[in-house]
Amino acid sequence: MGAGHGHKLHFHGHSAVHRAPAHLKLATLLVFMLTVVATPREWFPAFGVHLGLVLAVIAVSRVPFGYIGRRMVIEVPFVVFALLMPFVATGPRVDVLGLSLSEDGLLAGWGLLAKGTLGVMASLTLAATTEPRDLLVGLERLRMPSQLVQIIGFMIRYLDVVTDEMRRMKVARESRGFSGNGPRAWAVYARAAGALFIRSYERGERVHLAMLSRGYDGTVRHGSDR
């Protein structure tokens, strides 16, 4: 469980963006996104500036654009929603390619799409350039309660352990000939989830005992605190 535990979105590198302190990156992301959200959607050039800023940071970080681009699929369900906007919104209608669309809805859809996309790009850049451990130190520097930071730390640390446990259950299920389609398989999946809960809970108890026996007193010292 020692060092070198990157998460799936982390892109290893040594650029200025990678090396910047995490609390600075977090605060910058938050201020930047609040600015983006507060920008009126009619100010089209302003969004060009926002996009330019994000692209510049990505370029400096030397994370390939394709790497960020491929991960932006997380946005897809939301894009569908933004595209529906012109059809469901009220207000004066305008004809585009034979479709009667709401003018306000078109503008609103553009606003949602622009702000949401900028948000996903900026967050992905933070995730790609920041180790989880540094992120935790950054959150603590930003005065997040240390107990909450610890909980986040435990979740990140055991994420792979628990999801691997789940994957092993799936392999075991399928090697016994299970192939679940349709709601009739739900009971099987639910039992697996129940078993996963018991295993996670018991693992938590063992972790706590192991921590106590190493002198845990409610505070965690980060390796990078120095």
Partner: peptide, 11 residues
């Protein structure tokens, strides 16, 4: 709290 809530979050 810390380890248990963390593992429950993971679950």
């Amino acid at each position: 709290t810390a380890p248990m809530a963390g593992l429950v979050a993971t679950f």
